[in-house]
């Protein structure tokens, strides 16, 4: 039971990391709280569902296509709306309402387009084998999902630390003003970050039918809240801290489910709360507050 719980927690945790990382990237670069994060994830999930049901495409393939499409959509959203948003007194907070509006629109359109009935992809679509790890059987869909999550996260790492635009992105995360004064095109970097952020959300979406049960147009709000906990536990504004946050979140929720299921929902928030109080910048964060 213990080993089963730990391994499930790690597998689920990797997926959770992927779920939060896009939200954190956008926050890190733009200081925007993307309240529609879960709704973009939901779109990704429906994309995978339709690709699988109508064309028999594997969710892994849908994931690749969606990443490309979503980068374009994200950049588009950025250029269409964000420069205007930045002119207000407190863009960070105004972005909340902005994304709340986007979230309403996405949900409304999704209900019209997909109806309210829950949908699922057969759990065996990512493989039906049962892997034996340390004498315990794990369903292949979890293992494959975790693996895909790890690959995508690794790609984010490569992007941030081994590409030129990635350096620029990290510079913008550090300080927009300094980055701008050293000749970085902040708008371009931010637009790409927005695109990648949404793409990562939809990538997690393609895997969600295997980890989060059936998909519905209104699944987004809860996922946004969960993603918040994950990125805060890791560290807000530090995309790679999210990996740690995701693993802790995954492990703690699986432990609760195994041993004290009736309080399973409380722990992630308790964890988040304690971390906020004792290490406000997250487990991997630097000190941010001065007064």
């Amino acid at each position: 039971m213990l080993t089963y719980t730990i391994i499930s927690g790690l597998l689920f945790g990797l997926f959770c990391s992927l779920m939060g990382i896009g939200l954190n990237l956008i926050f890190g670069v733009m200081r925007f709280v993307n309240l529609a994060h879960g709704d973009f994830l939901m779109l990704g999930a429906f994309g995978a569902y339709f690709a699988y049901t109508f064309w028999g495409l594997s969710p892994a393939l849908a994931l690749v296509v969606e990443i490309i499409v979503m980068i374009a959509i994200g950049a588009l959203i950025y250029y269409a709306f964000v420069p205007r948003l930045l002119r207000s007194r407190d863009p960070e907070m105004l972005s909340l309402i902005f994304f709340f509006g986007i979230s309403q629109i996405i949900q409304a359109i999704a209900v019209i387009a997909f109806s309210n009935n829950p949908r699922s992809i057969v759990w065996s679509a990512l493989g039906s084998a049962n892997y034996q790890v340390l004498g315990q059987g794990f369903q292949e869909s979890w293992v494959v999902s975790a693996l895909i999550s790890a690959i995508v996260i690794a790609l984010v790492y490569v992007y941030l630390y081994h590409t030129k635009i990635g350096y620029a992105t990290r510079a913008v995360m550090g300080s927009q003003e300094e980055a701008a004064s050293s000749g970085i095109n902040v708008h371009r970097v931010s637009a790409i970050a927005m695109g990648i952020g949404l793409a990562l959300a939809s990538a997690a979406g393609t895997l969600s039918p295997f980890l989060l049960g059936s998909i519905t147009p209104n699944m987004g709000s809860d996922i946004t809240t969960t993603s918040f906990s994950i990125i805060i536990i890791g560290s807000l504004g530090n995309p790679l801290g999210t990996v740690l946050g995701g693993l802790i979140y995954g492990l703690s929720s699986m432990f609760m489910q195994s041993y004290v299921p009736s309080w399973a929902n409380l722990v992630p928030y308790l964890l988040l709360f304690l971390i906020l109080l004792f290490k406000p910048s997250g487990l991997l964060g630097k000190v941010v507050r001065h007064a």
Binding site: E92, Y269, L272, L276
Partner: peptide, 23 residues
């Protein structure tokens, strides 16, 4: 103690607190 946080940290911290009370 939440007041020690600022900006989005406070916003999300208070969100977590409300969820805890609810659960």
């Amino acid at each position: 103690p939440l007041l020690r946080l600022s900006g989005a940290y406070f916003a999300i911290g208070s969100l977590a607190a409300s969820q805890m009370v609810y659960y």
